[in-house]
Design a protein around this nucleic acid. Structure first.
Ligand SMILES: [Zn+2]
Ligand SMILES: [Zn+2]
Ligand SMILES: [Zn+2]
Ligand SMILES: [Zn+2]
Lengths: 168, 168
DNA sequence: CGTCGGGTGTTATACTATAACATATTCTGT
DNA sequence: ACAGAATATGTTATAGTATAACACCCGACG
């Protein structure tokens, strides 16, 4: 019975949380990781990462493209897809297959499997990296003789905030 | 360990299995379920279901469209998407979000959450309906105050057959 | 008959993603 | 600083996935 109550960052950011800080932290981490690995976080890539982190709702490639154009920058689909590919390869963002959209990675410690809770009302995609869930997945697959190398887990539903009927 | 070895239909069909039988069973079940629920499994819908069941590899909407045209039938994207929507709503097929493709449901007992093992080599998508995995998912989500209503679980990797290097 | 609703046909278009090639920028060694 | 290589971005075109909007058909029911 929940014998172990580990301290974990709650997956869903509060409504009034300081999102500018989310962005700062993410960009800082990205800068650090790229420097460490000898990868180039160019202005374009950095800007795309910033746009992906615009909120906790996954954002489509063409929405990013529009924002880049607003910046006055020359941009076409490959511009943004290449930046996204770089960020995906570095584990700085995730792709949400069921939404054809992208979201910043909450724990960009190298590439890692991620599980998402996606609220159908507010659109927030919260990353949970639950080792027990990962283990359960591994067990299920192994029983079928299957070797998983890229688990996709996207759970649609209603987040705690959106389950409460708007206010008290 | 593995104290309980339940009898289950193996998720991955054998290489030489009688696939015509898979199709027969699926079409029979579909006919039965639609009759039971007062739904109309029209010739078009039945044919699309048959094409989705063409193999155990998920098939794209436009591939189905091509086949319909080969049948000599007038067909355009809405033709196939409408049929697919019907089959999805009846729980007779599943959509694989990560592939933008569709696959027949192995257990069309009403709409249900499904988990898939998708082999990156042979392309087979095997449906596993593992209650323990579903429970683990539910637990994880609940801890975050999240109410899941549509879990998407698509595990990419290598199936047992494809892990063996081609032959003995 | 008449009309009503579901299913399908038809046309057009939106949205997502990549191929192929040109140009620019950065890095490396001299 | 320079040449040459490698990486990154710009540019144009096109492939692939999905839906909107409206027209037509056809069987059910009065
Ligand atoms: Zn935030
Ligand atoms: Zn929400
Ligand atoms: Zn089969
Ligand atoms: Zn396989």
């Amino acid at each position: 019975m929940a014998a172990l109550k580990r301290r974990r960052t709650p997956p869903f950011p509060g409504r009034g949380h300081d999102h500018a800080r989310c962005v700062d932290v993410a960009l800082g981490e990205a800068t650090r990781l790229c420097a460490r690995d000898g990868q180039r976080l160019t202005p374009l890539r950095r800007r795309v990462l910033e746009l992906v982190w615009g909120s906790h709702q996954p954002v489509g490639a063409y929405a990013i493209l529009d924002r880049l154009k607003q910046d006055g920058r020359a941009a076409a689909p490959p511009t943004v897809y290449r930046a996204l590919d770089f960020l995906l390869a570095r584990g700085l963002i995730h792709r949400i297959a069921s939404l054809n959209a992208f979201v910043g990675c909450a724990r960009p410690d190298g590439s890692h499997p991620a599980q998402f809770l996606i609220c159908r009302r507010c659109g927030t995609a919260a990353e949970i990296d639950d080792p027990r869930l990962a283990a359960a997945i591994g067990r299920s697959a192994t029983e079928s003789g299957f070797a998983v190398d890229a688990p996709i887990v996207e759970l649609r539903g209603l987040c705690a905030g959106c389950r409460r009927p708007a206010a008290g």
